[in-house]
Design a protein around this nucleic acid. Structure first.
Length: 500
RNA sequence: GGUCGGUUGGCCGAGUGGCUAGGCAGAGGUCUGCAAAACCUCGUACGGCGGUUCGAAUCCGCCACCGACCUCCA
């Protein structure tokens, strides 16, 4: 069942068999948020995608060190050598807060949202401001290696020199080096401090009014955005580690520059596998904080948005994301969310039925047995094929039909063994809760026992009425419950109920 | 403009050179006191035009449209 895992590597643009550097262990780094405003749903998709990667690696038995940073300094709006301002500094200025107050507020919000979506915390969540010393050291290394230059207290990475030297610049993001080289320095004008337009700041001298600043050999200033990821991944995972993830919009310049920096500092590639999640779309366009085409999770939960007709729960959204491969764009529409809601409920309900099942004992490995085992194997094969959650989910839904048929009597337990049923129960649970990371929201909502007790009473009274062929009373109860969004399901062994 | 990716049935979304994706919605049926739920069956979808092939939605070319990146963004 645990065949080899294949991962699409953005760096080679091919699916590759995953081989960790150290057997049984995985080092994974994912670019976290810049905490200068509330997370939007697009961010959540990205972290959900990598959450599933993390969960699946753990499920496969790997010991994973998962590092996901918090960017709390250095992320600029604009270009470093012109009129750029640090995003967090800017927010602090606008709201008259300490920069660290801004960071704390949005970091708390981010963590809350991760919890709501049942996204597991990383093993290490380092912050850029906690690694200033290491960043200064890396700047120095790059300078020592001759791949950076100092200009008025700021330090810039020399991309042109690096491109000529290593021939890797542009590989990740698919940029043509010739284009870069063809723009010779003599042709360039109005470049400010940079010698070449593609050069980027690794240390930035702080303007007098800038709040966040640290002393360095070059100036009182702050580190460049890309540098933190190179520094923190190196510190916690080593110079070269297994997997580096992030949104596809980070490929350039952020990841490209990370690669450059790692080569610039140690002469080696930072990661063996680069994974890029695709964007969440709304109205056919990328959901983006900066251009306003975004929706917050809260707005979706409450339905307080012109984009949706009603609210959708966090797990419905998580399920919605599972239905699409992480490398495909996902278009958010009300209709698709409604479909996801029903699909989610159907899946959870089937699991409930499955877990309550008991094999009658006698059963042989017939056709059904083969089908069930085949579908389980298929689901794992799907996940092994670059984490294909929609395909795995399809296999699961085929199992849902088997489960319901076993319950409804259309299929017989005699066709399957107790062993297979046990495997199905275990695997189904593993997939839904451990790998996909879904939670059973209904169970949590009704967990206090009072509702369950009341419902037992009500359904018992209704059963009395039905035995007496008192259809009026029976239907009155059913309709009244429906008003309360409780659905009564009549079955051979009495009635059950479900929310919604 | 450059680079890359996409265009799948009513909607969302997988996918492979020939064999069912799946979810939701819709139609018919079974079950039911009637429903609901569940189960069974169904629609012969792959942007357009050419080409390669015994065979292409899947490979190649051209065209159209959409998007992402190229500047901050998961």
């Amino acid at each position: 069942m645990k065949k080899e895992l294949k991962i699409y590597n953005s760096y080679s643009r091919e699916k590759e068999i995953f081989k960790p550097i150290h057997e049984g262990r995985v080092g994974m780094y994912v670019c976290g948020p810049t905490v200068y405003s509330d997370v939007h749903l697009g961010n959540c998709r990205s972290f959900t995608s990598f959450d599933v990667v993390y969960r699946y690696l753990v499920h496969l038995g790997y010991k994973v060190r998962y590092v996901r940073n918090i960017t709390d300094v250095g992320h600029l709006e604009g270009d470093a050598d012109t009129d750029a301002e640090d995003k967090i500094s800017k927010k602090a200025r606008l709201e008259q807060l300490e920069p660290m107050e801004v960071v704390q507020r949005y970091m708390n919000g981010f963590h809350d949202m991760m919890r709501i979506f049942n996204i597991l915390p990383p093993s290490i969540e380092p912050r850029a401001t906690g690694h200033i010393q290491e960043q200064i050291e890396m700047v120095q290394q790059i300078l020592d290696n001759g791949l950076a230059y100092v200009q008025n207290g700021s330090v810039y990475f020399d991309t042109l020199k690096f491109a000529k030297q290593e021939n890797v610049y542009g590989k990740l993001s698919g940029r043509k080096i010739e284009d870069l080289l063809s723009e010779t320095r003599d042709d360039l004008k109005n470049q400010g401090e940079k010698r070449h337009p593609s050069d980027f700041a690794i240390w930035i001298k702080a303007a007098p009014e800038h709040l966040m600043r640290w002393n360095s050999p070059w100036s009182a200033g702050f580190p460049g955005w890309h540098l933190e990821c190179s520094v923190m991944s190196t510190k916690y995972l080593g110079k070269t580690f297994d997997i580096h993830g992030g949104g596809s919009d980070l490929k350039f310049p952020h990841h490209e520059n990370e690669v450059a920096q790692s080569y610039g500092a140690c002469g080696c590639a930072p990661a063996n596998y680069w994974m890029h999640g695709n964007m969440l779309l709304m109205n056919g366009r990328k959901m983006s904080k900066s251009d306003g085409n975004s929706i917050t999770p809260e707005e979706l939960f409450t339905g307080n948005s012109p984009h949706v007709s009603k609210g959708y729960s966090p797990m419905v959204l998580r399920f919605f994301m599972m239905q699409t491969h992480y490398r495909s764009t996902l278009d958010l529409t009300d209709e698709a969310l409604q479909a996801a809601e029903k699909g989610y409920r159907r899946l959870m309900e089937a699991n409930k039925i499955l877990q309550a099942m008991q094999h009658p004992g006698k059963g042989s490995a017939g056709n059904l047995d083969k089908e069930i085992n085949g579908l389980i194997d298929q689901a794992f094969a799907d996940m092994n094929d670059d984490f294909n959650t929609p395909k795995a989910l399809a296999s699961l839904f085929e199992l849902v039909t088997k489960i319901n048929s076993l319950k409804g009597g259309q299929l017989s337990f005699s066709e399957t063994t107790a062993e297979t049923l046990a495997r199905l129960q275990q695997t189904f649970k593993d997939f839904i809760f451990n790998i996909f990371g879904l939670l059973n929201e209904d169970a949590e909502a009704s967990g206090n026992g009072i509702v369950d007790g009341l419902m037992d009473l009500i359904l018992d009274m209704r059963q009395q009425a039905r035995t007496n062929k008192d259809w009026g009373t029976s239907d009155k109860i059913r309709d009244a419950l429906k008003e309360l969004k409780i659905q009564v399901k009549d079955g051979k062994e009495g009635a059950t109920w479900v929310k919604g």
